[in-house]
Design a protein around this nucleic acid. Structure first.
Length: 267
DNA sequence: CGTCCCACCTGATTGC
DNA sequence: TGCAATCAGGTGGGAC
């Protein structure tokens, strides 16, 4: 479901509500695919721990916890349909709930994930697989794509190059930079890469400001929708007229993902 | 190693 | 109305 702006919105929302809380009990669903660490290890690490902070790294929600002076991290990757909710215990459990952290004050942090593409694990020292798009310099950004033969869209989606960008923000930033998604990453000029760097950071900042994109059912920790979808210029608009030039937007598949672009504005 | 493709899941929507 | 096909914000493993 969520890309960088949605994960950031969720992490910030959860952080504001549970930072400093103590976890008294952990329940997990036993669906093996969901758990990258053994469920017992997750329970042992979190039970009795205090939540120091909840933040985003790439598309992963990182919960920093301390238990008996030992620091650890609970990683929540939301996949396509994962949600992280902070609820009062009397609120009915949603279907497909896969983990519940009960807090000392009675509230519950719930991980809900219908498609089960999400993953839960515990670790320490997590830094994510790639570079951080919101703060990377134009120079370092350009460096990432040197010599790469894959399509620029596929490169943007590759989390080990740049982490946090997904299908929506890849298409939206390529449109705003005027670059066709199939262009070979290593053959973009420095000027084009600078435009892409700027467009990507603008789009991500704007989307974070609006609470992310709610395409179907994405909601943050408090059940609020995001509003960046109103500003999508290409994602979800295949066949419609380009908002800038009126040309019909085209759809194709790049890196295995549906891709929409303007054949006139993007070169 | 780089790149491509498909499997992994459920649910909503579309089309016959 | 009913049922099958298609599509979805993401990864990760295997094939080439």
């Amino acid at each position: 479901m969520p890309e960088l702006p949605e994960v950031e919105t969720i992490a910030n929302g959860v952080n504001e509500r549970v930072r400093g809380a103590r976890i008294t009990r952990v329940w997990t669903s036993g669906k093996p695919q969901t758990f990258k660490s053994p469920e017992q290890e997750i329970a042992d690490t979190l039970t009795g721990a205090t939540i120091a902070a909840v933040r985003r790294v790439g598309k992963t929600v990182v919960m920093d916890v301390t238990r008996k002076k030992i620091a650890a991290q609970f990683l929540i990757h939301l996949g396509m349909t994962g949600r992280l909710l902070v609820s009062q215990p009397e609120v009915a459990l949603p279907a497909h709930t896969h983990a519940i952290l009960s807090l000392a004050d009675g509230r519950e942090i719930r991980f809900v994930d219908p498609r089960r593409f999400g993953r839960l694990s515990v670790t320490s020292g997590y830094t994510g697989p790639g570079a951080e798009p919101t703060t990377i310099s134009a120079e370092a950004f350009a460096q990432l794509f040197k010599g790469r033969k894959l399509a620029i869209k596929a490169a943007l989606l590759n989390q080990s190059i740049l982490h946090g960008v997904g299908n929506i923000y890849a298409d939206e930033s390529l449109f705003r930079a005027g670059i066709r998604p199939r262009r070979q990453a290593g053959r973009l000029t420095r000027a084009e890469l600078d435009r892409l760097h700027q467009a990507l950071q603008d789009v991500l900042a704007r989307a974070i400001h609006l609470g992310g994109s709610s395409v179907s059912d994405y909601v943050d920790a408090e059940g609020r929708r995001g509003y960046f979808q109103i500003e999508h210029k290409v994602y979800g608009h295949a066949g419609e007229d380009c908002s800038d030039c009126g040309t019909a937007l085209k759809k194709l598949v790049v890196g295995g993902r549906t891709t929409v672009y303007c054949p006139n504005c993007q070169k």
